[in-house]
Design a protein around this nucleic acid. Structure first.
Length: 537
RNA sequence: GUCCCUAUAGCUCAGUGGAUAGAGCGCCGGCCUCCGGAGCCGGAAACAGAGGUUCAAAUCCUCUUAGGGACACCA
């Protein structure tokens, strides 16, 4: 990585560690810059002198290093070095990062509830989770994907209640839910069903339940396939609940949990959090207990160094309590567990809720965007890939902390800062490579580059840094933004630097090399975002 | 009421304490005898407010305002 090399050379020259190196926004400020001289209150010239004298004579890293502004040091990479690195990148785009190499990471995400709709909130969690997995895998980690599904609980009882009255599965939960809220008789029945389902005590109920569950899981599986996620482990609350309950009961003996008003609670207020119920006065485990029980089971299946759980931000506080409790019971697992929250997907009409009936189903959204794509491409398969790209990218380009507002489902664009723009850019550069006479024989060791060619080359070489930054901060948007910026530069290059017509052989070879690197970078970068880059579209 | 998150252009978003705050959509004006116009070039347009820390603040701290979320038997 270029950044690493520069940092090393500054560390040598200053004797300081943890140097901060910035990439320059303005080309006049070089390719990279540092304010280390300001921080150390040293004369930048001294540092520069040491830096340059340590530099290798043959193929030097820097063309020049200058002091500028109030005390910045700006680094201008040498063309020779850029060309050398560009040649390396042609062969190998490997991005392994020592921080992640060989690390085992369990990522739990998606977590839809059987019997309920797979809505765009699940889609968001799935998209983020899958990208986190791919980012870490690209960095050298061993990743296992985990899906934890709530196949017991009140929501299930509501659905089964409606299924008993022969409502179709798609409408069962909503029907049961409104009956629960408006009809006291139904409410009683549903509560009774809930217990029966936990205990599996009624064969007739079991039959309805089992069929509905299987049907629901099969429908989810179809969606995962469409989205491109394959889970390694599936866990179900019906299995984990009991284990969690046992853990809580044992924890109670150790004083981790307390009895309060008939329920068993974790006294979060002792840790600056709030009190939460882990086992209800009915003796049923809550979500907290189910998640608590899952930790050791996950570990049994995969000895992780880090366990990430991806969910929406509305349950941040639950996880604070949960992780605090986990640390009390299994300190090692608690230390290794991390909750990664993303913002909520809001419609212009407000928060999605099955009660209000303004849930957007994932399939409906994808199909609608696909229809838009079909107006341009006619090819089914491509339209599907374009639709997925548009939807996924729109979710990934935004920082994780913020809510995303979908003002109207059909408002997703296929132009501008979008997934299809990146796909298009990739396809168009691929098409250059199909032109007669376009072939990379050897990248010249030295050639005069235009300013744009230089900027583009440096941007392409920064790919590994973008992956590293995105992975270390668990921020897919860092990679998405990098790809967009690079694609913009690439398109600018496309319009001003023809390849086939270039007469000068060295220049032509440089351009072919750039074209290949653009296509490879976009293809690889998009694949980490879970987006397929077609050759033609 | 308590805790957490958010506030950047008309709209949707970028912006690891650093130099002239970047994009997309929308709006206005250009570009197809030339490798793919899902594209390119140009234009107008923004850091919620007030203090503070710092050589340097959209970024850190405090307060105010506005929006969202969570606050024990749902997840």
């Amino acid at each position: 990585m270029i950044r690493q090399e520069i940092i090393k050379s500054i560390e040598k020259a200053t004797g300081k560690k943890n140097i901060r190196l910035e990439r320059s926004e303005n080309p006049e400020h070089g390719d990279y810059s540092t304010s280390i001289a300001l921080k150390l209150k040293k004369n930048p010239q001294e540092i520069i002198k040491k830096l340059l004298s340590a530099q290798a004579e043959k193929s030097p890293l820097f063309e020049r290093v200058e002091a500028a502004g109030p005390g910045f040091i700006n680094f201008y990479l040498s063309e020779k070095y850029i060309l050398k690195e560009l040649a390396k990148a042609q062969k190998d785009l490997s991005l392994t990062n020592p921080a992640w190499k060989g690390k085992k990471v369990a990522v739990e995400f998606t977590d839809p509830n059987p019997f309920k709709v797979f809505h765009i909130g699940h889609l968001y969690t799935n998209t983020v989770g899958e990208t986190i997995c791919r980012l870490l895998e690209a960095s050298g980690a061993k990743v296992k994907r985990i899906n934890y599904q709530g196949d017991v609980g009140l929501h299930v009882a509501k659905a089964v209640w409606a299924l008993k009255l022969s409502y179709p599965l798609e409408r069962a939960y909503a029907t049961g839910n409104s009956a629960f809220e408006t009809d006291p008789v139904a409410k009683k029945e549903i509560e009774g069903l809930n217990k029966k389902i936990y205990e599996r005590s009624d064969p007739a109920v079991n039959k309805i339940y089992d069929r509905g569950r299987a049907q629901s899981l099969a429908a989810f599986e179809k969606i995962y396939k469409r989205l491109g996620t394959k889970f390694d482990f599936y866990y179900f609350e019906s299995e984990i609940g009991k284990i969690g309950k046992k853990i809580v009961e044992e924890g109670r003996k150790k004083g981790v949990f307390e009895k309060s008003e008939g329920a068993i609670v974790f006294p979060g207020e002792k840790y600056g959090l709030h009190k939460r119920v882990f086992i209800t006065s009915e003796g049923l485990p809550t979500y907290e207990t189910k998640e608590l029980g899952l930790a050791p089971i996950k570990y049994k299946g995969f000895k992780y160094d880090l366990s990430i759980i991806v969910t929406g931000s509305e349950i941040i506080d639950y996880f604070k309590v949960l992780i605090a409790a986990l640390k009390k019971i299994y300190p090692k697992l608690g230390q290794r567990t991390m909750h990664l929250a993303h913002g909520m997907l809001l419609l212009k009409s407000g928060k999605m809720s099955s009660r209000k009936g303004n849930i957007v189903r994932t399939e409906d959204l994808l199909n609608q965007v696909k229809q838009m794509a079909l107006q341009r491409s006619k090819n089914e398969e491509i339209a599907e890939k374009v639709a997925l790209a548009a939807v996924k990218y729109s979710l990934l380009r935004v920082g994780l902390g913020k809510d995303i507002i979908f003002d109207a489902v059909g408002s997703l664009s296929l132009e501008g800062d979008t997934g299809p723009y990146l796909q298009y850019t990739h396809a168009r550069f691929k098409s250059i490579l199909r032109q007669p006479g376009v072939e990379l024989k050897k990248l010249p060791a030295s050639v005069k580059m235009s300013q744009l060619e230089r900027r583009l080359a440096v941007a392409l070489l920064r790919f590994a840094e973008a992956i590293q930054d995105a992975a270390s901060s668990f921020s897919p948007n860092v990679l998405a933004n990098y790809l967009h910026n690079t694609a913009m530069l690439a398109n600018e290059f496309y319009h001003s630097h023809p390849v086939t017509q270039e007469k000068d052989n060295a220049k032509k070879q440089l351009r072919v090399g750039l074209v290949k690197a653009i296509a490879a970078t976009l293809q690889k970068g998009l694949s980490i975002l879970g987006i397929f880059a077609p050759e033609k579209m």
